[in-house]
Design a protein around this nucleic acid. Structure first.
Length: 615
DNA sequence: GATTCGACTTGTCAGGAATCAA
DNA sequence: TTGATTCCTGACAAGTCGAATC
C-alpha cells in the first residue's frame, strides 16, 4: 500500500525521474532526485527480489554514502590584515606607541568593539589582555602592563570613519564592490555534487577576532586565530580536481570521505571544536535531511499515546532510574524542553536542559494562584535565554519531584540517575529514530496544525488569515521559548503604525460622507451619471475599510509579536507541508508566509504537499 | 559506563539590502 | 532623492546525538 502523501509524490517523482542531472535547473533536478528517494523511503518499498540490482545497490548506499562526486574550489579566506595608517595611534599611558603588526592587528579587534557591551565585561577584558600580551614582542610586553592604561579611541574612530566612508561611496564604486562580491560568490559559493550545481552555505573561513561567547561565557574575549590553508581539510571526490590552495600554501589534508556532507573543515582554537563548510539549506542534501526529520516526527504521532501512557505508568516504578526518566520525558513532551547534555564546567556558560536541571532550577508549590501542584521553572537554557514557567503538574509528578529533591543541595542534579544517552537509548527502543529532540519537532508541528485548524476562518480576508497563521506560529514559538528582546525601535514604529491607522480612519469617514452625499444626489436626479458616482464612492468606502482592517491586523500582530521570535520555529520545527497545505486550502499566496530564501529551503514541501496534507 | 570526538542542527544577532515615507 | 525603518542574510555560537575510545 502506498501511503496517502506518497501517491502525489509518486506521480511527481516519476515525472521528474526522466530528467538527467546534467539538464539541471535548481527546482527541477532537486525534486527529481528528492522524490525518488522519498518514494523509496516513505512509501511502501518493494521487496528486494522485485527491484533491479542497480537500484538495490543505490538504496543500500543511502544510509552510509551521501555522494559519488563532489567538486568545489575550497574555502574563501579572510583578507590579510591591513596595517593602520601612520596618523592613527594607539596610546599607552597617554603617549602614542607604535605596535608590532601582530599586536596592532589584535588591538584593532578590541578597538572595533569599544562601543559594545562586551568590552565593559571584566572576563572579556581579562581574556583579551591575556591573549593579546601573548602575541606581543618582549619589549611590548614589558611596557604594556595594564589594559586600563591602553587607549584605543583613535583606532576606534578610524574604523567608524572607514565605515561611514563606505556608505557614501558613489554608485559606480558600490557597483564595483557588488560585482567583486558576486565574482567571489560565483567562484567559491557553489559546488558540483553528483552532477548538480549546489549553493554552499558558508564558503568563507571565519576571520580572526575576539570570541563573543554568549551569557557569562568564561572564554569571551579570547583571541580567535586567523585560519590558514594549512589548517584546512578539504573533502572532495577522488576523481575530481583538488582545489588549489592559495599560492605559497598547502592544505592540511585532502580527503575523500563521502559518508559526510562537509566540503572543508578546520579546528578552532577557543573550544577546540571543528568548524565545517557545508551546503546551503536549499540544497538537495539538506532538503532530504529536513524531510527525513519531519517524517520521523510524523512517525512519533502514531506511537505518542502509547509512549505517554508508558511514562505515566513509570511514574510509580520501584526503580528510581525509571521514575526519573519518566518525569524527565514528561517535561520534554509537555514543555518541549531540550535534552540537556552534560557540559564541561568552566568551559562554557552555565546553561541547562531537561536532563541537566539542578535542584535550584525548580521550586515546588502545593498551591499557587489557585492551582494545585505547581512547578516553577527558572533556569538559563540554550544561548543563556531564561526559561521561566509555572506549570501545574499531575500529583504523582509533583510527589516524584519532591522525592528527587530530598536531601540534595541546590547545586545537585535533579535527575541524578539520568543522562541524555540513557534517555535516548530508551527512546530508541520505543521507536526507531526517536530521540529527545524529536518531541520538540513533533509538538511544534502538531501545535501549528491544531492552531491553524482552530483559528482560521475560511471567510476572512488574506490579512486576517495571516494574523491567524502568525498566531498559530506564535503559539509554537512560546512553547519552544523562542523569546527575543523587544526591538529598540518598537515603540516608535508602533506609534507610526497607529498614526497611519488614525489617518485611514479619517479617510474612511470622509469616504462615507461622500457616499452619503452621492446617494442623496442620485435620489434627487435618478440619472445614470449619479448612479455611477454612487458605485464609485461605494467602492472607495469598501477599499478604505479593507485597508483599515489590514492596518489593524498589522498592529495587533506587531503588538503580540513584541517579545516573540517566530523565525526559529518556522525554519527548524514546523513541517513546511502544514503551511503549504494551509496556503493552498485557504487561497493564501505562499509568498505571504515564506520569503524567497525560505521558499528555496522548502522547495520540496511546496512541490509535494497538497491541501489535504496532514502532519 | 564515562568521556571525548565528530558531524550535524538550532539559535541569536549585526549589518546590509530593500522598502517606505517625506 | 534621501533618510528612516523593516526585512533578510550570513556569521558564528551553542546545542543534540551517535560513534569511537578507554
Amino acid at each position: 500500500m502506498w501511503r496517502k502523501p506518497g501517491c502525489l509524490s509518486l506521480a511527481l517523482g516519476l515525472c521528474w525521474l526522466s530528467r538527467p542531472p546534467v539538464s539541471y535547473e535548481p527546482g527541477a533536478a532537486f525534486l527529481c532526485s528528492f522524490l525518488t528517494v522519498a518514494l523509496r523511503r516513505f512509501c511502501a518499498v518493494p521487496q528486494r527480489a522485485k527491484i533491479p540490482k542497480a537500484r538495490w545497490e543505490e538504496e543500500q548506499r543511502e544510509d552510509g554514502v551521501k555522494w559519488q562526486q563532489l567538486e568545489h574550489n575550497g574555502p574563501y579566506f579572510a583578507a590579510p590584515y591591513e596595517p593602520l595608517p601612520n596618523h592613527v595611534h594607539f596610546c599607552y599611558n597617554g603617549k602614542p606607541m607604535k605596535l608590532s603588526l601582530a599586536a596592532e592587528e589584535i588591538a584593532t579587534f578590541y578597538a572595533k568593539m569599544l562601543d559594545h557591551d562586551y568590552t565593559r565585561k571584566r572576563i572579556f577584558q581579562n581574556n583579551f589582555f591575556s591573549d593579546w600580551t601573548k602575541e606581543m614582542t618582549p619589549e611590548e610586553r614589558k611596557k604594556i602592563k595594564e589594559l586600563g592604561k591602553c587607549n584605543f579611541e583613535e583606532i576606534h574612530k578610524h574604523f567608524v570613519e572607514k565605515q561611514e566612508a563606505r556608505k557614501t561611496l558613489s554608485k559606480e564604486e558600490k557597483q564595483k564592490l557588488k560585482a567583486e562580491a558576486e565574482r567571489i560568490q560565483e567562484k567559491y559559493g557553489y559546488c558540483i555534487i553528483d552532477g548538480h550545481r549546489e549553493k554552499i552555505g558558508n564558503f568563507k573561513t571565519e576571520p580572526p577576532g575576539l570570541f563573543r561567547g554568549r551569557g557569562d561565557h568564561p572564554k569571551m574575549g579570547m583571541l580567535k586565530k586567523r585560519i590558514m590553508p594549512e589548517d584546512i581539510i578539504i573533502n572532495c571526490s577522488k576523481d575530481s580536481a583538488v582545489p588549489p590552495p592559495p599560492p605559497g600554501h598547502k592544505w592540511k589534508e585532502v580527503r575523500c570521505d563521502n559518508t559526510v556532507t562537509w566540503l572543508a573543515s578546520w579546528s578552532e582554537n577557543i573550544q577546540g571544536s571543528i568548524k565545517y563548510v557545508m551546503l546551503n539549506p536549499s540544497s538537495k542534501l539538506k532538503g532530504e535531511k529536513d524531510w527525513q526529520k519531519y517524517e520521523v516526527a510524523r512517525r512519533l504521532k502514531g506511537v505518542v499515546s502509547k509512549i505517554r501512557s508508558q511514562y505515566r505508568d513509570d511514574w510509580k516504578s520501584k526503580e528510581m532510574k525509571k521514575r526519573q526518566r519518566s518525569v524527565a520525558l514528561y517535561f520534554i513532551d509537555k514543555l518541549a524542553l531540550r535534552a540537556g547534555n552534560e557540559k564541561e564546567e568552566g568551559e562554557t556558560a552555565d546553561t541547562v536542559g531537561c536532563c541537566s536541571l539542578r535542584v535550584e532550577h525548580i521550586t515546588l508549590h502545593s498551591r499557587l494562584d489557585g492551582k494545585q501542584n505547581v512547578v516553577e521553572f527558572d533556569f538559563l537554557g540554550k544561548d543563556c535565554i531564561r526559561y521561566y514557567n509555572k506549570v501545574p503538574v499531575e500529583k504523582q509528578v509533583f510527589k516524584n519531584l519532591k522525592l528527587f529533591m530530598e536531601n540534595k543541595d541546590p547545586g545537585e542534579d535533579l535527575f541524578d540517575r539520568l543522562s541524555t544517552t540513557t534517555l535516548n537509548k530508551h527512546l530508541q527502543d520505543l521507536m526507531d529514530g526517536l530521540t529527545a529532540k524529536v518531541f520538540r519537532t513533533y509538538n511544534a508541528s502538531i501545535t501549528l496544525q491544531e492552531q491553524l485548524e482552530a483559528l482560521t476562518n475560511e471567510d476572512d480576508n488574506v490579512a486576517a488569515k495571516l494574523l491567524s497563521y502568525n498566531r498559530a506560529n506564535r503559539a509554537v514559538a512560546i512553547l519552544c521559548n523562542h523569546q527575543r528582546a523587544t526591538p529598540k525601535t518598537f515603540e516608535k514604529s508602533m506609534q507610526n503604525l497607529q498614526a497611519k491607522i488614525d489617518a485611514k480612519k479619517d479617510q474612511l469617514a470622509d469616504a462615507k460622507a461622500e457616499l452619503k452625499r452621492a446617494k442623496a444626489d442620485h435620489k434627487a436626479k435618478k440619472d445614470v451619471k449619479s448612479k455611477a458616482t454612487v458605485e464609485k464612492k461605494r467602492k472607495l468606502v469598501e477599499k478604505t475599510e479593507e485597508q483599515l482592517c489590514k492596518l489593524n491586523m498589522q498592529a495587533t500582530d506587531k503588538e503580540e509579536n513584541k517579545q516573540i521570535a517566530l523565525g526559529t520555529s518556522k525554519l527548524n520545527y514546523l513541517d513546511p507541508r502544514i503551511s503549504v497545505a494551509w496556503c493552498k486550502k485557504f487561497c493564501v499566496p505562499i509568498e505571504k508566509i515564506y520569503n524567497k530564501t525560505q521558499r528555496e529551503k522548502f522547495a520540496w514541501a511546496i512541490a509535494m504537499a497538497d491541501e489535504d496534507f496532514e502532519f
